[in-house]
Design a protein around this nucleic acid. Structure first.
Lengths: 288, 288
DNA sequence: GATGATTACGGACGCCGTAAGCATA
DNA sequence: TATGCTTACGGCGTCCGTAATCATC
């Protein structure tokens, strides 16, 4: 009567790989088993979930995928959460961080090692979503993530039931090439409004900072389009692109060399700590 | 290998009813089956989830319950969501609303019936959580809920993946008894700050407006304590209590007869529409 | 001793793999 | 024709109920 999570996993894999046989290989099933999983799901729900040849989700399938992802993530988070209270404090400290939070994270890891010497520590850099997911599933013990949000608003992260604590909120600024008109004398101090720059040449750097689509959400304005997508994970590369006149980006004021502050709306660069559990994760990781 | 959702349901029922046998009766299982469900879960996770005699969740069990509730809700939401796109527009229009949104909802239902005459319509009043849950599971087609939030912030609702649209944001005011000191001449216009009233005699009316605990969260202040809890669902009763000098409450300015506006922080009374799907739910339900 | 959770055991159903069938590029 | 999804079928594991056992009030 209830949808089996294993079927959901199979369905997700098939939809992602767009192939029954590839999903079977990945999951260690036979092609036949995968076919039966999908058939069972479709029979249970009374609707086709996938088009075949080529394999693609139907409208109903798309809906199920959205829910399914959240469900599977939360299922893993539940297991990890329960295991943590069961197994007691770990001997390892695996921390994740987004590029702009790497500094804070590194300092926190160092502090933790000083406090509890015999720790096998590691630091991993990744996107907000990847870090949050890994902390939820217990792959990491703690994570420090950042993004853009309204003042005092929490970051929008995948729902995992994890407690998130504010570490810092910092002013934002537009990183601009040195010859940008906005940098002309008068405007220097006053700052620019986000609405005025909707049609500017944006650099979308989803792995470094908030994806452009998120900005559009926060600004309640459509039309943000990326002139260039930067796939790197380092701020330096992004700033180099800006300096080379390839476009502009919205970043924490502290890392911006030449640019103007964000005047409105009141958005900030927010950093949050995701606590995975165990006492070790709590040590030494506080506001910078 | 994966936690079976049925086991999760059983576990939730046992924890709620604090009894294996009662849960068995409710779910249509035998006592034995329930025992085996719990045993399977505990074996899978490698930890005790329940204390027996008396039956109560362990620390690990408590964690599982939190996740489990979210998972089961989302599972039901997934089924309902898929079914909706499969079955096409319904002939029924079941709307839910919180007490303070009843007026808006009633008008919306009336408008919808005028637009699409042959509709079997219904309107149900309940708490935010109950309405949101019912919309997610397809029990209701749409819901109108309200609560207190920071400006432009969405309401905190159970995670269901439902789209929520803002219907209105209104000013808040403290409802006060006519002889309250704050109403003395001078203060009338200026309004009062939430921090100044932390120690006041609050009436907690969780079924009518936001629970006091939510207010504490939003104000980032502890210490709000209820002098009296009002369990009714109607605003009139709550206002009568205020007028009788039993305490104060924070309500939308429009329904407050005697009181002072909320000056700070910038909180508003927010109303949101939860769209359950089907075209019918979309008709006639817009901003008032 | 009664109520209520656990354990033992048998039957039934469901899931997976092998293998044959079938559709589409 | 080849690749890849579906269907048929048999074995095995899992889940549930009956019934006996054990523990606690």
């Amino acid at each position: 009567m209830d949808v089996d999570p294993r079927f959901l996993r199979t369905f997700a894999a098939v939809a992602r790989l767009r192939s029954f046989s590839a999903a079977a290989r990945e999951l260690g099933y036979t092609q036949s088993a995968v076919s039966q999983h999908i058939a069972a799901l479709e029979a249970d729900l009374g609707t086709a979930l996938l088009h075949r040849r080529p394999v693609a989700p139907t409208e109903a399938g798309t809906r199920l995928l959205e829910h399914g992802g959240a469900i599977l993530l939360r299922l893993d988070a539940a297991r990890a959460d329960v295991m943590r209270v069961a197994t007691g404090p770990p001997t390892r400290l695996a921390v994740g961080a987004t590029p702009l939070s790497a500094r804070v994270a590194a300092r926190a890891v160092a502090a933790a090692r000083n406090a509890l010497p015999p720790l096998e520590a590691s630091l991993r850099i990744g996107t907000r979503e990847a870090i949050a997911t890994a902390v939820a599933t217990g792959e990491l013990d703690a994570g420090i993530v950042d993004g853009i949000a309204a003042v005092n608003d929490p970051l929008r992260l995948p729902e995992t039931g994890l407690p998130a604590a504010e570490v810092a909120e910092e002013e934002l600024a537009f990183a601009l090439p040195p010859d940008h008109p906005l940098l002309g004398r008068g405007n220097r101090v006053r700052g620019a409004r986000l609405e005025d720059l909707v049609d500017a040449r944006w650099i979308d750097a989803p792995a470094v900072t908030a994806p452009l689509a998120d900005l559009a959400m926060l600004a309640r304005a459509d039309g943000f389009r990326a002139a260039l997508v930067y796939d790197g994970q380092d701020v330096a590369g992004l700033l180099a692109l800006v300096e080379a006149g390839q476009g502009l980006a919205l970043l924490p004021e502290k890392v911006v060399a030449t640019g103007v502050p964000l005047a409105s709306p009141r958005l900030v660069h927010r950093t949050e700590l995701l606590r995975g559990g165990g006492a070790a994760a709590l040590v030494g990781i506080t506001a910078p």
